[in-house]
């Protein structure tokens, strides 16, 4: 009975050949369980122990309110512009809020997209490949590299990590040209790989993942190791589920970056170019396309925002659903 409760803390696949835990591990697991019970009781009673002053709360909320209005301004503007008729878009002085909302901008955009030389669906497909490829690949391989750097000891660990951190401080503008030369030399110019592979090697993702993995208690990995798990299994089934907030955050950053990439530096074939490129061609179309342009700006902003909201909500849920986290 006691053992069954203990093993609930480890994933089910480790149960196949149970190994006797040492007294020390028993103790750790017991305390984790106690903390959990303690927490549940707290939640039921619904009272916070700390005294949180009302005046302090009010001051913080007012500060947040004022800042929030300024912060959300561009979103409000983009949303309103998308439903403004042409005369309101060109009104001077410009107004933020729309008076006669219309969906004409979106129908205009739809007509324009059907006229494009390369079928519109092709741009969408390109974007999916580039954005998702660049994001998922980066999150996985950067996390794979971050786990040993955070938790294992081996020669070269320190220097590898400091090179990654230092690399973020070198201005991206001047490395673009050498990077272009390397991509041409590799022969991957004018392919998806020219955008996706460099994105996999960004320094920030590794740094972010390493910082979060560092916080995991060593006992977590050791107990898995005792049960015969290899490094890959520990990484994929123990470390990754426990740093879910980190990789969801990294996914947001990477999605945003890849989504904004027009690929114009490396992609010459029209049928390889992403949505962002096609949409920006519309915005540069002058007065007659200003309406469609506003709709484009809205769409370009809306996609990362939806992705952001999905990821953020799951980040918030992690704490309540994961039973292992302590």
């Amino acid at each position: 009975m006691e053992k069954a409760k203990n093993s609930r803390l480890l994933p089910a696949w480790l149960h196949r050949n149970p190994v006797e835990l040492t007294a020390e591990q028993e103790e750790i697991l017991r305390q984790k369980r106690l903390a959990k019970i303690h927490r549940k009781m707290k939640r039921k009673s619904g009272k916070k122990k700390l005294n949180r002053s009302t005046a302090g709360n009010a001051a913080l909320f007012i500060l947040m309110g004022i800042c929030g209005v300024f912060m959300v301004l561009p979103l409000v503007m983009i949303l309103n512009n998308a439903v403004k008729p042409l005369d309101e878009l060109y009104q001077y002085p410009p107004r933020i809020f729309v008076r006669n909302p219309t969906l004409n901008n979106f129908t205009d955009l739809y007509v324009l997209l059907n006229e494009s030389w390369v079928p519109f669906s092709r741009y969408v497909l390109n974007t999916i490949i580039i954005t998702l490829g660049g994001m998922i690949g980066h999150v996985i391989i950067a996390s794979m590299a971050a786990y040993p750097l955070a938790k294992n000891h081996f020669p070269g660990k320190k220097i590898l990590f400091s090179v990654v951190v230092l690399s973020m401080m070198f201005s991206w503008t001047v490395t673009q040209i050498p990077q272009y030369l390397i991509i041409s030399w590799l022969g991957i110019n004018n392919t998806y790989a020219a955008l996706v592979l460099p994105a996999w090697s960004f320094g920030m993702g590794l740094y972010l993942m390493k910082q979060f993995m560092e916080q995991l208690p060593d006992s977590l990995m050791e107990s898995a190791r005792l049960q015969g798990a290899n490094e890959w299994q520990i990484f994929w089934r123990i470390v990754m589920p426990n740093v879910k907030p980190a990789w969801l955050t990294l996914a947001i950053f990477q999605f945003q970056q890849m989504w904004a990439n027009t690929g114009s530096m490396f992609l010459r074939s029209e049928e390889l170019k992403p949505l962002q490129y096609a949409l920006q061609q519309i915005t540069s179309g002058g007065v007659s396309r200003a309406g469609a342009g506003a709709a484009v700006t809205f769409l370009i902003a809306a996609v990362p925002i939806i992705f952001f909201l999905i990821c953020q909500s799951s980040i918030m849920e992690t704490m309540t659903t994961s039973g292992m986290k302590d």
Binding site: I141, A145, P148, P178, Q179, E231
Partner: peptide
């Protein structure tokens, strides 16, 4: 585990 990342990293960032 580190190899895939660091190969790309040296190629596209360090170099």
């Amino acid at each position: 585990l580190m190899a895939p990342y660091f190969i790309l990293f040296f190629l596209f960032t360090v170099l």
